[in-house]
Computed example of a mutant assay.
Amino acid sequence: MKNYKQLVAMISATFILVFALTGMTTQASTDYYTTNPKIIKTKRAVTYYRDPAKLHPDQKVSANHFAKITKVVTLDGHAPVLKTNTGKYVTANKRFVVKTSGYQNPKQYYQVQYHQIKPHGQVGYTVKRHFEGIKTWYIMRKMGTFTGYDKYNQATYNAVKRFQRRHHLKVTGNVNEQTWLKMGFSKNAWTSIDRYIAPLKAHAWNGRQAHIAAMIHQAYRYMGNPYLVGSSSSPKYGTDCSGLVMQALYAGGINPLPTSSIHHAYPGNEWNSRNLWAAKKFKHIAYAKRQRGDLVFYYQPGTHVIWHVAIYLGHNRVIESWPPRIMVQPIRNSQRSDIAGIVRPFI
């Protein structure tokens, strides 16, 4: 009888142990990621480690931090951890991190893109009267009609017609690809000026601050270049105020359609600052709550008409294109100080 009781006790203990182990396994598979979630966002503050055993802390990050995950690592006697693309390790516990498709604005606002933004409009457009932009700038300098304002005026139209007659081209006063090439410009430039869209410099696994940094970094690439109305192309050229903002937004992943860099050179689009201000897919913020990365819009003095936009850098400084060049200036100065409001591209 004694041996029987001992046997029953041993079986019961074994059953309890197996149940406990099974329960632990179930809990682990429920509470922890066991397959790669690809991109995670922290739900609360967590610590990153230099090793999967979590013996060597590296840094602490706050809630809403994003990371790209390369694999799930499980060491004997340790809970699963996630290895990031930076080689650091973070808990795989679902109470602390959550699988996500990446950083994104709320649906009612412009969505952050994670594929290279495409040019919107005709690449290789014919330049006509009242057009502006880089192609017009080149043509006017070639024709000797540029006096500081790159708008295809009547003098340029007449000069182009004379040029076409001399070179036995169809006389239209407009510059198509054939006339462009005869002027000595390259075939590549005919399309590359239109096609340029700033490359994306932030990924889905980067958070808001990385997207703001990408936008501002792109704007700084134009520093010192001339103010050129209707221009929004490569950093080897100048821009105007909204042309600079558009390329900066592209680098952060926002495509502010229907405003586009190609159409910016078309007649009537030199005031795209007004279109950006009126866009319903941007979030408007109180001036007192302005933050680095916001867009600052200005009224023309004495009116309620938008005529300028700049990128806020913090500490009451902006980067902007304002005659004569792209530069960093105080948020208010003697040239423009009537602030209409603040727009936040990245929420």
Rank of each mutant, 00 (worst) to 15 (best):
Y110H: 13
S101A: 13
T84F: 05
S29T: 12
T91H: 08
D51T: 10
Q122P: 10
A63Q: 15
I69G: 04
K99G: 08
K94Q: 08
D31Q: 13
G77H: 10
T70W: 01
K68N: 10
K94H: 03
L82Q: 05
V127M: 10
T84V: 11
K68P: 06
Q113F: 09
T86S: 12
H120Y: 15
D76R: 07
H120V: 15
K71L: 03
T14Y: 07
Q122V: 15
T22H: 04
Y33K: 02
N64V: 07
A53K: 13
V123A: 10
Q111G: 08
A53W: 05
Y109L: 13
T42I: 04
T86I: 02
A28Y: 00
F96I: 00
A20N: 05
Q104L: 05
A92L: 02
K41R: 11
I40E: 00
E132D: 10
L17N: 04
Q59S: 15
I16R: 01
R129I: 14
D31V: 02
T84H: 11
T86N: 14
S12Q: 02
K118M: 13
T100E: 07
K68Y: 09
V112E: 01
A63L: 12
Q6W: 07
T74W: 02
Q6V: 08
P57H: 10
G77N: 07
A63E: 15
I134M: 09
V97L: 04
H115N: 10
V97M: 05
